[in-house]
Design a protein around this nucleic acid. Structure first.
Lengths: 205, 205
DNA sequence: ATAAACGGAATGCTTATTCATTTTTAAGAA
DNA sequence: TTCTTAAAAATGAATAAGCATTCCGTTTAT
């Protein structure tokens, strides 16, 4: 008998609860990313999560809270992909490459998360927490654009617009692949990166 | 009494029907563009169109047919903005400028149409006619990209990917404005155009 | 006067949410 | 350890609200 363990800090109860929470979030992510918020019924989420319909309401106040939970989960994961262990001592071109690669990794590893985030972006049912998370998680990139602008490296365009152009280009690339217009190869991805870098800073400089 | 007019070729009935059809399409466009297909109730469309709920079903078989009607209407208008009286004898840079300006004009004149088309793109409830219209209306741009590629003017990237990057960049620019991140000025639009042109073709050439 | 078009209440189905009941967990007594 | 039991968690049928579509009495054009 082990008297060094007074009580398990994580009870069976907590463990189960965590697993269930995850199962619900994952099921909701899958369905919302395919058909959008209004296109999915809550009992359907319950079924996919192998959970009773009532159980969802023990974890989330209502359907809106559920979609916000999924949003915050996905956005946090994206931020982790983008910024964890990021080396801010790189030169601008290297930083750009890091962002591009990390974004690509996210889109490849977590296509459902990526699609979900694109679909729900700026939806009217997103709450204050979700909106702040959106702004926060883009802030480092905006800072990068602003600095590059100040250093006369980036183009003379408002940094927000620069960021929007490049983010939009990336999203367009992924969406067109999703839509079946082509299959992205490694070399196409690299070529797209340098094309976007040339969008970012004037070619002659 | 005027015996020279045997019968009016357009009856009051036909005229009213046309007006009603338009009113329904416009109301549906407004609501769908704001809240998506599943987020809008048909009687709500009827109310905004000043029409009885039943009347909608005299013009459209069901809700799906309605959203497809709106889609086809909007996509056709976009194609008109993009291609009507287009001068295909311009050089590539001039053609690019024409496309960019026309797309901008559409986004400015018809922001609701633009938003609707972005929101419903590749939605599972779009029918064959809508999907074909999508492909058809982008074909001239794809042809432009393919030709520019063949003439070694455009970057060495699959033309579909090039188009996706530029289209995506444009959409990103407009969406970020919609989201309130900034207000687009004339000069920003021009700068964005040349940035995208540099994305399109290698800067050194 | 007649036939088509219209309107909007009525119908029947779907769905968000609740709640009474059952199952599971934690902890102490035997 | 095994049994007992109170509390927490989970369930899914039931409730209530919402919605797509229909239908029939009314209006309108010819």
């Amino acid at each position: 008998m082990d008297i060094t363990t007074p009580a398990p800090s994580i009870s069976v109860r907590e463990r189960n609860a965590e697993a269930k929470n995850q199962a619900i979030l994952e099921a909701a992510l899958t369905l919302f990313s395919a058909r959008g918020f209004h296109g999915v019924a809550v009992p359907e989420v319950a079924k996919l999560a192998n959970v009773g319909a009532g159980t969802i309401y023990r974890y989330f106040e209502n359907k809106e809270a559920l979609v916000n939970g999924v949003y915050q989960h996905a956005k946090t994961l994206l931020a982790a992909y983008l910024f964890d262990d990021f080396d801010f001592n790189q030169n601008p071109r290297e930083k750009f490459h890091s962002f591009w690669s990390r974004l690509r990794q996210f889109a490849q590893d977590k296509p459902t998360h990526f699609r979900f985030l694109e679909l729900q972006d700026h939806a009217p049912y997103l709450d204050v927490v979700s909106r702040n998370l959106e702004i926060q998680s883009l802030a480092p990139i905006l800072t990068f654009c602003t600095q590059a602008r100040a250093e006369k490296i980036a183009r003379d365009i408002p940094p927000e617009a620069l960021m929007a152009l490049i983010w939009g280009a990336f999203v367009g690339l992924i969406k067109a692949q999703d839509a079946g217009y082509y299959t992205l190869s490694e070399s196409t991805f690299q070529a797209a990166e340098s094309a976007c870098w040339d969008l970012f800073c004037p070619p002659s400089a």
